[in-house]
Design a protein around this nucleic acid. Structure first.
Lengths: 152, 152
DNA sequence: TAAAAATAGTTTGACTATCGAAGTAAATAA
DNA sequence: TTATTTACTTCGATAGTCAAACTATTTTTA
């Protein structure tokens, strides 16, 4: 590895760390400045995991965001109270609670998607289509590395 | 934008979100499997912010990780008790608390740096030096977008 | 098919991280 | 010298998390 490459690696490494260490906090701060001040970034991730179309059960959502079912219960309690989420008992299996977004929940979901898109757009700023393919490979590399770690 | 490019954008967007939503959790899980089970990912970020060489005050570290000075006090209390961090009163200004890593703190700091490097290496896997430059630009785009948001 | 086991979610109690407000000690300005 | 500001700490309140025990329902099994 030449000196320039090493320098590149160091810079990429340190900016990657910078992004990871700040992105959550920035998302939280953006929420607090928005119309949805009553949501934390964790609430937002719950709403994101519930998502728009497929119905999910409480425990499925808990698994996605890595909290226990009991924590899920109290998280959902608050989101229901604030009017973002609906609880419905499943008809097929009456033990199961199906979660869905209310109108207000859908609005904030879409707004948050917009935030993510802005981030992705800025990520790819000024890239040719060949460049985009390279970046796509990189982010895919990273995601599959993390998935691999997750499975261990 | 052609259809392929749109598809690329969607995939990059969704993997980017996937990375952000999972990386903290994976770092936490990796810590729990390591020799340093008594550290949370937030403890690790505190240690990271204290860093190896330059002495930093308690309030500087608090600013870096976005917590209040009072939260910093109790975070440091625990890291001191567990033997990762040292408190020293500044001689120049005896109100100031300078923070430093102990031997054990330095070991875990280096281990965590290794974790980051592995991530960066996987991110760049199979890339030519031209590709690396492209990826470097992308991650730099993202970091400066976030920095811009942060300043607002 | 009746009883036992498993599953989905909730409640409870304990613990931890966080904050803001008030307090202390030291430095700086008036 | 006194008043103000600064750096940190203490205190009390609040929110998120978990594990264990519990309820209701479904599935298995004897």
């Amino acid at each position: 590895m030449g000196e320039t490459l090493i320098t590149n690696f160091e810079q990429i490494n340190s900016e990657l760390v910078g992004v990871f260490n700040n992105v959550m906090w920035i998302e939280e701060a953006a929420l607090k400045q928005s119309l949805f001040k009553d949501l934390s970034i964790k609430d937002m991730h719950t709403i994101e995991a519930i998502s728009m179309y497929e119905e999910k059960s409480a425990s499925e959502v808990a698994r996605i965001i890595h909290i226990t079912p009991s924590s899920m219960t109290s998280a959902i309690d608050k989101l229901v109270e604030k009017g973002y989420v609906e609880r419905r008992r499943s008809i097929q299996d009456r033990r199961v609670v199906k979660l869905g977004l209310t109108h207000k929940g859908r609005i904030v979901y879409r707004a948050h998607q917009g935030f993510h898109r802005d981030m992705a757009r800025n990520f790819l700023e000024g890239m040719s289509s060949e460049d985009v393919t390279v970046v796509q490979k990189a982010i895919h590399n990273l995601m599959s590395y993390l998935t691999r770690l997750l499975q261990k």
